[in-house]
Amino acid sequence: MAFLEVNYYSKVLGMDRVMNVILPELSDHNPTWTTETLKDIPVLYLLHGMSGDHAIWQRRTSIERLVRQTPVAIVMPSTDLAWYTNTTYGLNYFDALARELPEKVASLFPQISTKREKNFVAGLSMGGYGAFKLALGTNQFSYAASLSGALVGNPRQEDFLKMEKLSYWQGIFGDFDSFAGSKNDILALAKTCDKRPKLYAWIGEQDFLKPINDVAISTLQQLNYDITYETAPGTHEWYYWNKQIERVLEWLPINYVQEERLS
């Protein structure tokens, strides 16, 4: 596997951006891989939470080791603190990540597949919201996974004010009264989605976001989405996300090879 830090320019945002990429390559570590193996490679876009950036998955988890024997590319971008959203202050992070970024990846890495059935997205906390939002708001991704996701439909203002002040949230989403049914409401997006992705969600039983996950998953089930919902003892922290990202890899259609199975 090659690990690359890619600096590129985003026309949508009007600024330089950075993404980390884990890319399969021919090497002695994978003697069965051929040039054919590494054509049309599936890709997982891995999204960070509120306190993270493009490097946080690499720093806090075993993601590079986990995919060492699996021909899948991992793309780790940053949305800063913008919630994968076209913000009210004029920076269109949703467009930059949902539409521009896959085009940028295709131009820089032609061996990575552009096929919907080979494009996946996953994230934690804010990134879990982003993963479902990107998958339900576009036709780009066939699988989407949320770990401890902020799967908000109609957010309660008082809950959000526990995390940040009102002016911050208004800068991202606008007024809370207009959130439900908007393009930022993942449950509203689920009702109008053209090509339904398969969905996966995990959350710890002691996580403060579990109640909104229960509501969101119930709604998605009522809408007849193909969704796997799993819970286990746990809180909102990296110890659990490091464990659960392997579960996501097992769930994705990528022929995941666990390292411990190798001789």
Rank of each mutant, 00 (worst) to 15 (best):
G171I: 06
A135M: 13
A201R: 03
K183G: 12
G128C: 06
D185A: 00
A144D: 10
L161F: 09
Q206V: 13
D159L: 08
Q206L: 13
R116E: 08
E205F: 12
V121P: 04
D207R: 05
A188D: 11
V152H: 11
G128D: 05
P211S: 02
G204Y: 07
Y168Q: 04
K198L: 07
E158L: 13
L136T: 05
K115D: 11
D214M: 09
T192C: 14
I172E: 01
G149I: 05
F132Q: 00
Y129T: 04
I186K: 01
L189G: 00
L220D: 13
F208K: 13
G128S: 01
Q206Y: 15
N184C: 06
E158W: 05
L209C: 07
R116S: 05
F179L: 10
Q221E: 15
F132W: 08
D159P: 13
E164C: 12
L209S: 06
L134F: 14
S146P: 13
Y168S: 03
P197W: 06
G149V: 08
K118F: 09
K162R: 12
A144G: 10
P211I: 02
S148Y: 10
F173V: 01
E205A: 12
L189E: 00
Y168E: 05
N119L: 14
Y200F: 13
A144K: 04
Q221A: 11
N184G: 01
S142R: 01
M163A: 14
S113R: 04
G149L: 02
A131H: 09
L134A: 07
L136V: 04
F173P: 01
K183C: 15
L147P: 04
S142D: 00
P155L: 07
I172M: 02
L220P: 07
W202E: 02
N139P: 10
T114S: 12
K198N: 11
G153W: 05
C193T: 14
E158N: 11
F132E: 00
R196V: 01
D185H: 13
K198P: 07
E205I: 11
D185W: 08
F208S: 15
A190F: 05
K162G: 14
S167F: 15
F120T: 02
L134P: 03
T138E: 00
T114Y: 10
P155E: 07
A131F: 07
L199W: 04
F176G: 01
K115P: 09
L187K: 00
A180C: 11
E158I: 14
S182R: 12
G171T: 00
P155N: 05
Y200C: 07
L147T: 09
M126H: 03
A216T: 12
Y143M: 06
K210A: 07
I217H: 06
L187F: 04
A201W: 08
T138C: 02
E158V: 11
L147V: 11
N154P: 15
K195E: 10
I172K: 01
G137Y: 03
N154C: 14
K115Y: 12
D159R: 07
K118P: 02
D207W: 03
R116Q: 01
A145W: 04
K191F: 11
Y129G: 04
Q206S: 15
K191H: 09
I217P: 06
K118L: 08
Q170D: 05
L209R: 01
A216M: 10
K210I: 09
D177E: 13
L124H: 11
V215K: 15
D177H: 15
G174M: 05
L134W: 08
S142N: 00
S113I: 09
V152S: 15
M126A: 05
K162Y: 15
A150D: 03
K165E: 14
